[in-house]
Simulated assay, not measured.
Amino acid sequence: MATVSRAAAGTDASVIRASLADPDRFATVYDRYAAMLYRYAYQRVGPEIADDVVAETFLAAFRGRASYDLGRQDARPWLFGILTRELATHHRRERARYRAMSRSAHETVQDGPADQVAARVVAAAARGPLAAALADLAPGDRDVLLLVAWGQLSYDEVADSLNIPQGTVGSRLSRARRKVRLALRDIDPTMTTEEHHEI
């Protein structure tokens, strides 16, 4: 069976529009984004509830598809916004996960090329303080930071997904990065090398 390319299947907006008459078409949106949303949810709340949160996200998206702004061709910000609201109901679970990670033993470094070993040692050393810093962030600040760092959304997309002004995204991200940098002694793994040089 031939795989239909994304271009042939249409933009997210056109797929959602078509799903209003043919609900089965919404499966295309699921196929495009389920793995991405699952990875994000897994990092935030762990495997025990990531499946349920993603399922609830797509159920809410399906039910609310008639109100989707068809002028927005990319549904990622919309879906991440729904997912963020679903995750908010698990905020205690998320904070407990980060606290547990901050106390857990560092992962064992395995033999391998020197660069790989060095990278794993640095990552293991940062894991505890990073998890503790994430647990201590205000929920809104954490949402913005993780949508940028793990969800790979732009500032505009984060503003769309959370329905907040872009200026609020910038201030929350700045505040979150400052706290994370402090916890990691001025090393923020959510920033690119270029951003480090700008500070």
Rank of each mutant, 00 (worst) to 15 (best):
residue 115 D to P: 09
residue 25 R to Y: 02
residue 173 L to D: 12
residue 133 A to M: 04
residue 87 L to F: 01
residue 133 A to Q: 01
residue 66 A to I: 14
residue 100 A to E: 05
residue 164 I to Q: 03
residue 22 D to Q: 15
residue 127 R to M: 04
residue 2 A to E: 15
residue 85 R to V: 12
residue 143 D to T: 06
residue 61 A to H: 10
residue 43 Q to K: 07
residue 169 V to K: 01
residue 37 L to I: 01
residue 158 V to M: 12
residue 189 P to G: 11
residue 11 T to E: 06
residue 175 R to E: 07
residue 144 V to A: 05
residue 176 A to R: 03
residue 116 Q to D: 15
residue 77 P to E: 06
residue 151 G to W: 00
residue 24 D to A: 11
residue 28 T to M: 14
residue 156 D to Q: 05
residue 122 V to N: 15
residue 122 V to P: 09
residue 175 R to N: 12
residue 35 A to G: 11
residue 93 R to K: 08
residue 30 Y to V: 13
residue 147 L to I: 05
residue 43 Q to Y: 07
residue 121 V to P: 08
residue 190 T to L: 06
residue 119 A to N: 09
residue 110 Q to G: 13
residue 96 A to V: 01
residue 83 L to W: 02
residue 68 Y to Q: 13
residue 146 L to Q: 02
residue 56 E to Y: 14
residue 160 D to L: 09
residue 111 D to F: 09
residue 29 V to L: 14
residue 64 G to W: 11
residue 67 S to K: 13
residue 1 M to H: 12
residue 11 T to W: 10
residue 156 D to S: 09
residue 10 G to I: 07
residue 37 L to T: 04
residue 82 I to M: 06
residue 119 A to R: 13
residue 49 I to R: 14
residue 37 L to H: 01
residue 8 A to H: 05
residue 123 A to L: 05
residue 13 A to I: 13
residue 127 R to F: 00
residue 122 V to F: 15
residue 54 V to M: 08
residue 104 S to R: 15
residue 76 R to Y: 06
residue 145 L to W: 00
residue 46 G to A: 05
residue 130 L to Y: 09
residue 153 L to R: 01
residue 173 L to K: 15
residue 196 H to S: 05
residue 44 R to F: 02
residue 100 A to K: 01
residue 198 E to F: 12
residue 29 V to R: 04
residue 110 Q to F: 13
residue 33 Y to S: 03
residue 85 R to P: 07
residue 199 I to D: 02
